[in-house]
Design a protein around this nucleic acid. Structure first.
Lengths: 114, 114
DNA sequence: CGTTAATATAACCATATGGTTATTGATTCG
DNA sequence: CGAATCAATAACCATATGGTTATATTAACG
């Protein structure tokens, strides 16, 4: 299952907010519930719920009701796909970057030989 | 130089649009100019200029005027920082994911022993 | 059984985003 | 020089985003 463009929109969009990245960072310690995830932030509980919905919509987390609380856990696969997109292109970009760098160094060398 | 949160907002925000990812993908073939980058899309030239400004603001590309055209090239370092953020956490997420998976398998095993 | 707790939803608001057309500023070319 | 080309900016518009408060829903507790 290769991630499609629409899904990448959602994943990167979800990652573009510091609160949501913070939530994902918290989940690196293992699954949690909404109250605990909300605790570090001084924003309202509904705001956190909305952030969780965005993360869920992007496939980065999943929520499961257990009793009156909602357990939240990360779905690592989606995140890896996003990482894959960047690192894939990063390799090509670096190549060209290095190539340009070499040319610049070559030019400096030639100038020093004057 | 570690990338800060505000900058990550901009980088992931820039990556959350398919047109901008397309532009970055084109730049994997080497630097280009605005017209060539705009060609594949059926949107107006100002729209592309705006996308380029977003990418530039995020530190993902740089623009340089040469004559009447603008050369555009990628800045691989910024992209690598974003990739770094994801992959850093991906390792932890995967750990917990694997741990949960093991527990589930253990439970299945116990059930089969009934 | 009534109250408290955990979470979601609704309605609203301000600002951001992604597009458009019109216009402008340089540069190149005939 | 005058026309065409490359690209940016301005002004505008519709929709999305991120927050709020108020309310609803469901579960747990005394």
């Amino acid at each position: 299952m290769v991630i499609d463009s629409k899904e990448l929109d959602l994943v990167f969009g979800a990652l573009s907010d510091a609160t949501r990245r913070g939530i994902l960072a918290q989940l690196a310690d293992g699954e949690s519930n909404v109250s605990d995830l909300a605790a570090p932030y001084q924003m309202s509980q509904p705001a956190i719920s909305k952030h969780l919905r965005v993360l869920e919509g992007a496939g980065l987390i999943e929520r499961a009701k257990t009793g009156r609380e909602t357990r939240v856990r990360v779905k690592p696969d989606t995140a890896r796909q996003a990482a894959g997109w960047i690192t894939h292109y990063a390799r090509f970009w670096q190549q060209h970057f290095d190539a340009v760098d070499q040319i610049l160094q070559q030019q400096r060398k030639l100038q020093n030989e004057d």
